[in-house]
């Protein structure tokens, strides 16, 4: 074994598991230069692993600030056609809004999302609120109160695409209005978000002020556009949001991924999978899961996605 081969073995982290050390040992016994290199390499490994200590406390805050500042200025949302599926016009608009990390602070009391997915880590929100930026120095105006107080939950708006993708799991047809079975909680009539306490509104205004102007405009436009849709279509989406949110954080995330995955299928495949899932819904509840697991589409999902799908199927009327 040559010096080069020996050193190649010495620097390979997997070398220890590979066996065949005898030639390396033999070479080291004979070569003082490689013995010296081996000692130096070991010491370098120790220095590298040591690092400098703990992760800085402001790491999270600075990453989020950078993410916010990196949000590109989005284009103005196109007014959606009222007679068409509401999702189409909203998804693109919601995308740009959700892209800003400021949404974390704007998670609001979307009425049908009381059991929503786990909130953002407090460590994200708290430092932003207390960084002395002075954003709260100016009082909340009536206009801000009207605009920000009426905003819907950004998580809900950001989930519209996923909710639309879950169509096969719900009997409701967006064109004909929702149908709710006994296991599905009927959403309350929710023409506007629940009024906030003064403190909650102040927090929400602060979060809103922190968003880039383009995101503020887009959020307002999106909220206004969603509010303009027929009430039954709003209720359909809010009902789905309620069902998905109630699954729990992990499975709710799985359901959202599942919805996105369904929407990303090629049209032919999506039609086939949709048909298969809808057929499952005609089976007795005790047979649905076993049949679902036998579908090729099911085998391609993650554990979270499968669990979410099974819960939705089990609860289907």
């Amino acid at each position: 074994m040559t010096c080069a081969e020996t050193r190649t073995r010495l620097v390979d982290p997997e070398s220890a598991q590979q066996g065949g050390h005898a030639p390396v040992v033999t070479h080291l016994q004979e070569c003082a230069g490689c013995r010296e290199a081996a000692r130096a390499y070991a010491e370098i490994e120790r220095l590298l692993k040591a690092g400098s200590g703990d992760t800085p406390r402001d790491l999270d805050v600075r990453i989020h600030r950078r993410l916010i500042s990196a949000v590109e200025r989005p284009t103005a949302p196109r007014p959606p056609a009222p007679s068409r599926l509401p999702i189409v016009g909203l998804v693109a608009a919601g995308a740009a809004i959700a892209a800003g990390a400021g949404y974390l602070l704007l998670r609001g009391p979307a009425p049908s999302s009381r059991t929503a997915v786990a909130p953002a880590p407090a460590t994200v929100a708290a430092p932003l609120l207390s960084d002395g930026s002075g954003l709260l120095d100016s009082p909340v105006t009536e206009q801000e109160r009207a605009i920000v107080g009426g905003l819907r939950d950004v998580d809900f708006l950001g989930s519209l695409e996923a909710l639309a993708g879950l169509d096969p799991f719900f009997q409701a047809d967006l064109a004909s209005g929702p149908m709710y079975g006994p296991a599905l909680p009927t959403p309350l009539p929710l023409p506007s978000p629940t009024p906030l306490s003064p403190e909650a509104l102040a927090d929400k205004v602060l979060a809103f002020r922190r968003l880039p102007k383009a995101s503020q405009d887009r959020l307002v436009a999106l909220n206004r556009a969603f509010a303009a849709y027929p009430a039954d279509q709003q209720r359909t989406l809010e009902g789905r949001w309620s069902r998905v949110s109630a699954l729990g954080p992990e499975e709710a995330a799985g359901a959202r991924r599942l919805g996105v995955r369904l929407r990303s299928l090629e049209p032919d495949e999506r039609a086939r999978v949709t048909s298969e899932i809808r057929q499952l819904r005609t089976l007795p509840a005790e047979q649905r899961i076993a049949r679902w697991r036998s579908l090729p589409f099911s085998s391609r999902l993650t554990g979270q996605e499968r669990a979410a799908a099974e819960k939705l199927l089990a609860a289907a009327d």
């Binding site: 959700a98 995330a253 991924r257």
Partner: peptide
């Protein structure tokens, strides 16, 4: 999976 959701602008995935 989460990166796919990030592409769909899922803030929680990020």
């Amino acid at each position: 999976g989460d990166l796919l959701l990030v592409a769909a602008n899922d803030p929680l995935a990020l």
